[in-house]
Design a protein around this nucleic acid. Structure first.
Length: 152
DNA sequence: GCCAACGTTGGC
DNA sequence: GCCAACGTTGGC
């Protein structure tokens, strides 16, 4: 079992939006970065858990917990010319981008803000805390995962 | 709105 | 295959 962190801009898709979805499940579409895609495609398994992270907003930070309920499959939005994430170089015969399905496990009672997370030396190796980090999906170690769950 | 970081593109 | 230019991300 592995642990992850999923970034999303709440103005685009927030944890409350996820809570309103049928069965609290959504396809994590729109990922157009090869590193992130490879992690979804090659490493994510059903039952893996991940943090839901709000980025580019008033209070960036971890807001809840999700679980992977479906492994990687083609992301439909890449074939749709009207979609934001349309990729003209991709085709249904040879899809370039994939998504996984995640289910909301729990919305935390409070936001674990970036500034709070930075206060803990044992979390300083988290990729999401690194300066200049732009990866929208990052791996989390079991120790980091436990420590953060204990803060929530 | 600024700007650092960094992924991608494309000319050579 | 190199690398400059460009675009995007995302905290502040």
């Amino acid at each position: 079992m592995k642990y992850w962190l999923f970034k999303s801009e709440p103005s685009c898709f927030s944890i409350d939006d996820l809570a309103k979805r049928p069965k609290k499940i959504t396809g994590w579409d729109g990922i157009r970065n090869y590193q992130a895609r490879n992690m979804m495609r090659d490493e994510m398994k059903i039952g893996d858990q991940g943090f839901f992270y709000h980025s580019s907003c008033d209070e960036p930070g971890i807001v809840g917990l999700v679980e992977i309920v479906k492994t990687a499959y083609p992301d439909d939005t890449q074939f749709d010319p009207d979609a934001d994430h349309f990729d003209p170089k991709s085709s249904p015969e040879n899809p370039r981008w994939v998504m996984v399905d995640v289910k909301l496990v729990q919305k935390f009672n409070r936001v674990l803000t970036l500034s709070e997370l930075r206060e803990y030396p044992h979390l300083s190796s988290m990729i999401v805390l690194r300066k200049g980090n732009r990866l929208s999906i990052t791996p989390v170690t079991p120790d980091q995962f436990k420590a953060i769950c204990n803060l929530a």
